[in-house]
Design a protein around this nucleic acid. Structure first.
Lengths: 168, 168
DNA sequence: GGAAGATTGTTGTTGACGACAACAATTGCT
DNA sequence: AGCAATTGTTGTCGTCAACAACAATCTTCC
């Protein structure tokens, strides 16, 4: 039960349009997806699009994107990690992580500290400012997560997390 | 039951490393994700990455990517659609669809036919070659879908499709 | 019937992102 | 000491979403 199902609901849809030349009978969401309906990848792509847009909007005031949030969270929970360790854990390329950390370091949320035990690597830490900021980000992210719950239903969200747990 | 769960299995992992300078006790997948574990977006991102890579690999011989496949499928099932209709139905921007169709048209899989009823728009059709090609793509895509089933389990895949049906 | 507004396809730009390849500095192994 | 591997970094390439602008065309409304 619950789950809501909620129709597609693509914002503006003030009831069709009278006579359209080209569209003829094809009135959007009257168009069949054929084989696409059985593909998990398609559904996941649409879902990810929706969920990222909501995340970006919800955390818009603090200007934090999903990837940045994941980096901050992991560093916050595991201070002193190397860039390589963070990259491997999150499935980010270490080349990409360089730019992400550059940005976060400029914003004084993260600092790279030269490791004493391995002079190649950096130990990553949140700044004091980064620590309090992350707390705020987490509250906003929790609000975003509630949006997801409202969209697909509480039980469905939890099942989703369980099904996909092997990818985290 | 079933479901397999299957560990993360990120290719090469030949059992830790003896003494590592920087990593210390953090031996990958010993690193906590903290708040991230409760976020559907993170799980979905990782899953989508996996699923797209498998799709691209499985359809590698025919050089068809997920978005191209979705466009071909919709056109095949609804001949004569306008670019706008396809874009709206698939959640693609019409600007992006232009390049996608340019590519598919060069490969003689799709043709744009000037609409008589609306001289602004194009009626999209598969070529004969595109029609037989799509049939092959669908067989390969079905193989990809079986990979998904093996990864997350048959029942889980179906539940996933049901949960995310409101986004398709 | 004609002006004003909306729609369609197109081009171009921007930025996030994943995948690769190369490199210097450093470390580990033998 | 020497050679292979690792770490951070830089750079390039291609995909993709989000915008903005534009010409051609259609709709609508007066």
């Amino acid at each position: 039960m619950t789950a809501s199902v909620a129709r597609t609901d693509t914002s503006t849809s003030p009831r069709k349009r009278a006579g359209n030349g080209a569209a003829l009978r094809e009135d959007v969401d009257d168009i069949g997806l054929d084989a696409l309906v059985g593909h998990a990848g398609y559904a996941v792509r649409r879902f990810q699009l929706w969920i990222f847009q909501d995340f970006i909007k919800t955390l818009g005031d603090v200007d934090i994107r999903p990837t940045q949030y994941s980096v901050l969270t992991v560093i916050g929970a595991n201070p002193g990690l190397s860039q390589m360790a963070v990259a491997k854990r999150l499935g980010i390329e270490r080349a990409r992580l360089v730019h992400l950390l550059d940005s976060l370091e400029q914003r004084r949320l993260v600092k790279r500290i030269k490791s004493k035990t391995d002079r190649r690597s950096h130990a990553l830490h949140l700044t004091a400012q980064g620590d309090t900021a992350l707390a705020k980000f987490k509250r906003l992210a929790a609000a975003h997560e509630r949006h997801v719950e409202e969209k697909i239903g509480k039980a469905n969200r939890e099942q989703l997390l369980q099904i996909l747990a092997c990818f985290t």
